[in-house]
Design a protein around this nucleic acid. Structure first.
Lengths: 123, 123
DNA sequence: GCTGTGTTCAACCAATCAGTTGAACGAAGG
DNA sequence: CCTTCGTTCAACTGATTGGTTGAACACAGC
């Protein structure tokens, strides 16, 4: 299931340190040691973070002598974006449809923000 | 700080049950009980999930008699999308730039700045 | 071959998390 | 009033997480 990977990707990016690592990897590949440098944690901890990112498919590692440079895999982002866009759009449409209903049925002065109208409208 | 909220949003969506709840809320608002129905867990557990989503800013609740309908707040999605887009794009650009470099200076070594020892093709 | 550097594995710890049950609260309705 | 329904709070549990340290592994250079 892609569901599983989606969970891993979201979970991976839920950590600020890992998000920062991704941000730095977007600029350029880096070794584990180089990635670890700015943070006040052990290299082992960073290695674990990389493992999480790798398991999520966000990062790949290759071999360069004894180093293992990390490379950002950008495609996985699309998985997230698709998921998000889908529901954001759906919610947006529903919001606009509600707007239309309110404007049509009522025809009153509803120019300001209508606060939440609870369900029941949707069939 | 937005960083903190970003962490909460990603963490909230890392759970498949919560993602499913968001998906259903995109269709229409729903009460806690209604949301809980399809899942094989207690209502209290679902209530907790809603709290997580609410703390992340993804869901808001209003009052309707003794019910508390949940409403999806779509704007928070933008926060995520912005973050993702930023780094996805950056990685993409870097990839294209590298492509250009490889095409132009085929097989030559450039010692100017980063060591683009690149994995994959270059070995 | 040894030594040094870079990285990961293993075991452990404290904190957080997703789930449970039991009780309490707020509002509607007999 | 008292009950019932929908929801949340409180306390507890087992699993996961992010961190640690110490050892092991994989190369490169002497």
């Amino acid at each position: 299931m892609a569901e599983d990977q989606l969970s891993r990707v979201f979970a991976a990016l839920a950590d600020p340190t890992r998000r920062d690592m991704v941000a730095r990897l977007a600029v350029g590949d880096a070794t584990v040691g180089a990635l670890a440098a700015p943070y006040d944690v052990s290299v082992q901890a960073v290695s674990k973070h990389i493992k999480v990112l790798t398991d999520a498919g966000l990062v790949s590692q290759t071999r360069d002598a004894q180093r293992r440079p990390c490379h950002l895999e950008a495609e996985v982002f699309d998985l997230m974006t698709k998921w998000i866009e889908r529901y954001r759009q759906q919610a947006q449409e529903r919001y606009e449809r509600l707007d239309a209903v309110l404007a049509g049925v009522r025809g009153e002065e509803q120019t300001t923000h209508h606060r939440h109208r609870r369900q029941g409208a949707a069939s």
